[in-house]
Design a protein around this nucleic acid. Sequence first.
RNA 1: GCGUCGGUGGCGGAGUGGUCAAUCGCAACAGGCUGUAAACCUGUCGGACAUAGUCCUACGAAGGUUCGAAUCCUUCCCGACGCA
Length: 444
Amino acid sequence: MSAINFNIEKKSTGARGARASTLTTPHGVIHTPAFAPVGTKGSVKGILPEQLKALGAEVVLANTYHLYLQPGEKIVKEAGGLGKFMGWVGPPSPNGSGEAKPTITDSGGFQVFSLGAGFGKKVSKFSPDEVEGETAEKEDQIAVYDEDVASQHGQLAIIDDEGVSFTSHLDGSLHRFTPERSVEIQHALGADIFFAFDECTAPTESYDYQKEAMERTHRWAERSLKAHRQMEYTRLRQGSGVAKQAIFGIAQGGQFDDLRRISARTIAEMGFDGFGLGGSFSKKYGDDSLQSALAMLKELPETMPVHGLGIGEPGDILASIAAGVDIFDCVAPTRLGRHGSIYTKHGLIHLKNDKYRSDFTPLTKCQDFVNPSSDDGFTKSITSGFTMAYVSHLVRSGEMLGAVICSLHNLCFILNLVAGAREAILDGRFDKYRADFVRDYYST
RNA sequence: GCGUCGGUGGCGGAGUGGUCAAUCGCAACAGGCUGUAAACCUGUCGGACAUAGUCCUACGAAGGUUCGAAUCCUUCCCGACGCA
């Protein structure tokens, strides 16, 4: 019995393609395609929950690794779950705060990549039998770590078949994630949708390593699912009612089509509630890996909801929607915004550039491209008094309001882009919608 | 007027005979950012050709010592402080 219900309202004919759906979660409905703003530590940086709602966001994504380290999953559980904890709630009821809105947690698998293991061969890896022991052995494990790499990049995450050992970036203390532990933490965090623990790889890894990591991810997926079912079973037996959380399995395979396909099939057959398209699609790795990753979706049953992890570049989002991805999350809107870059119909611009010092064009001009029905929307009205010159000034002078305005703007842009895609799908004109956008955004 | 300490690239501030077109920070200019160790990181930053590099002009001004001076000497200008 799944905690979510996925209902496809409209889909392209033929092979798997763009579709519009409603995803009903224990905390509310998500209309897909949907974009989930990222609130890694339980906060979409600089943005109030009320503002997120006004922008049209229906779900936010937080991170297991970060919340585990700080404040600790127990606190979040005690608060009543992630949504309640972070104030991501609906209208208040007469006798208290409102009901929590939909949330997703990432498993911490990405941190295995970003905290060091992504640097692959430079990082020592352990065979399973070396790490069977408990905490006492961990000191020794770290000693094998490549000191040069560690000091150069500050990375400290070591993969073995059983799980991942890592040192906290906050205080250097030693920790360990296994699939079971990740699930346990994510149960405590209580998001509507959470992910199986995986190993994210860079597309620059060799075939052999991609295969090894993929197979490990599959074993971890199985263990994650099993752990989830056991915990859920126990909870249900204690009379806690219905299933509260859905678990998505993550497929990997890097840039290799055959691995991607194998991974998709393997994950799909395990019985997850949904599918996570894993990987890292940063531009620095080249352009092919996303295409290769999207191709694997053909292996999935149409009825399976798909989450594109970390896919957030506008063109990539539309390409992914075309391939049947339903939900997205990405740090780009907020990170770019904090750094002073904003999306416009004609591409990304850097407000710090000299030419915007005296550009008195209203900021809202950048949002005129999609979803005309949102013309009276929140961001439009809240940012209507701001000019590029003013925001440029704020960003230059380090005023936090600059970061906030740019983040709002970018979230508005991406949420509108995705909402516009949904409308277009429902109207049967998605291909044109995508083509028009891409033409304008990537011209010049 | 006397004395002391200072005047270095947009700013702050190192350097006190050669390895100095001059450490570093800020500013400026540009680039990057895709499941957030990211309100961050990288590059450029006297001028001209410009890849390396080469050549100019430069450390208040003018002279001087020296093979060689941002660095030593003389005078002048300017600033801060102290004494009259």
